[in-house]
Amino acid sequence: MKEENRGGVFKWFDFRNYSLERFLYTMHRISGIGLVIWIVIHTIQNAFPRLFPFMYGWEYTILLLILSFHAANGVRLLITELGFLLGKTYRPVYPYKMGVIYGTQKKFTVVILLIFFIIFLVMFYYLMLNMRVIT
Results as ranks from 00 to 15, higher is better:
residue 101 I to W: 14
residue 128 M to K: 03
residue 10 F to V: 08
residue 110 V to L: 10
residue 117 F to G: 10
residue 122 V to T: 09
residue 110 V to I: 15
residue 95 P to G: 07
residue 50 R to G: 12
residue 53 P to F: 07
residue 100 V to L: 12
residue 79 I to T: 08
residue 23 F to Y: 10
residue 76 R to Q: 08
residue 120 F to R: 00
residue 24 L to S: 06
residue 98 M to H: 12
residue 130 N to D: 10
residue 86 L to K: 14
residue 120 F to G: 00
residue 93 V to R: 10
residue 61 T to Y: 00
residue 67 L to S: 14
residue 21 E to T: 00
residue 57 G to F: 01
residue 45 Q to M: 11
residue 71 A to K: 05
residue 107 K to I: 00
residue 38 W to H: 06
residue 111 V to F: 15
residue 134 I to L: 11
residue 32 G to H: 04
residue 5 N to Q: 13
residue 27 M to H: 01
residue 106 K to F: 04
residue 129 L to K: 14
residue 80 T to I: 10
residue 19 S to A: 05
residue 10 F to M: 15
residue 26 T to Q: 11
residue 10 F to C: 09
residue 90 Y to M: 08
residue 34 G to Y: 09
residue 53 P to V: 08
residue 130 N to G: 07
residue 102 Y to G: 04
residue 19 S to K: 04
residue 97 K to D: 09
residue 121 L to V: 01
residue 27 M to E: 08
residue 116 F to Y: 14
residue 17 N to I: 02
residue 40 V to R: 08
residue 83 G to K: 08
residue 107 K to Y: 04
residue 89 T to Q: 11
residue 105 Q to C: 03
residue 104 T to L: 08
residue 71 A to T: 13
residue 88 K to D: 14
residue 112 I to C: 11
residue 52 F to G: 01
residue 56 Y to N: 11
residue 68 S to V: 03
residue 57 G to W: 05
residue 52 F to A: 13
residue 119 I to V: 15
residue 10 F to K: 14
residue 131 M to W: 06
residue 124 F to A: 05
residue 22 R to A: 13
residue 31 S to F: 10
residue 107 K to P: 01
residue 121 L to P: 00
residue 114 L to Y: 12
residue 30 I to F: 14
residue 40 V to S: 05
residue 38 W to C: 05
residue 12 W to P: 00
residue 77 L to C: 06
residue 110 V to W: 13
residue 24 L to Q: 03
residue 56 Y to R: 13
residue 99 G to Q: 11
residue 26 T to Y: 09
residue 98 M to K: 15
residue 79 I to P: 01
residue 4 E to F: 11
residue 88 K to N: 14
residue 109 T to N: 14
residue 109 T to K: 06
residue 2 K to F: 12
residue 119 I to S: 10
residue 9 V to Y: 13
residue 39 I to N: 09
